[in-house]
Nucleic acid binder design. Structure first.
Lengths: 108, 108
DNA sequence: CTCATTAATCGTATATTGACGATTGACGAT
DNA sequence: ATCGTCAATCGTCAATATACGATTAATGAG
């Protein structure tokens, strides 16, 4: 995604508009929840407040490695955050990220 | 997607929680706007009310074929609709689709 | 009818995603 | 120090997404 994306955006003659980066931002967030498993994870975290990684794995019909990858995607998009708690990792929603997502979508 | 995924979603036609299909629905819609070009297209249609395909192509730094493909994705997700108008195709937002997207995201 | 225009589709190349098992690193308990 | 547990990461494979030029189908103009 990086190279072609960037090129496409930059090569646009009317690149001056700020809407371009907003579009990218919105796409980034939307893409993060563009998979059923990630929607499920996000909802789970919202419902439970916070959640140890293993608990999430138990709830989903996916391998641990796969869940970890999905969590990484959500984390990189700024929708969740995880803090290390001993040998486990405790995940929770990033309210700012979710708020921004709602703002952007709601503002359509 | 491999067997496990499919099995997971399909193996519960309607018996299990409804949240599963809602998750899928939300992911489907989010995925549709999970690309900057499609966000730009959707916004363009919202701003203009309706728009001939060619006009969209002119606004974006993408080839006609590519824009057409993005439009197809948006159409399949139920976010836009297009009606044939002579030799051109006039696209417009599907209010129901956008409303549903907003509901689902807003309800998080 | 022929031509130009418009947009969908085809074919294709490349990039990214999604899934998993295996491995690694970090930590607490013994 | 060793062990078991937990979660991230690696390596890999199949599937999907993205982009484009070329082609096709549909339509209106002449």
């Amino acid at each position: 995604m990086p190279a072609s994306q960037k090129t496409a955006s930059k090569s646009a003659p009317k690149a001056a508009r700020p809407s371009r980066s907003v579009d990218t931002d919105m796409a980034r967030l939307a893409k993060a929840i563009g998979h059923p498993a990630r929607v499920a994870i996000l909802k789970l975290l919202i419902a439970r407040g916070e959640c140890v990684c293993g608990a999430i794995v138990d709830e989903l019909p996916l391998a641990q490695a796969t869940v970890s990858q999905h969590l990484k995607v959500l984390k990189e998009a700024g929708l969740v955050q995880g803090e290390i708690d001993g040998p486990r990792v405790c995940y929770c929603v990033n309210p700012a990220g979710v708020r921004r997502l709602k703002e952007l979508i709601g503002g359509l």
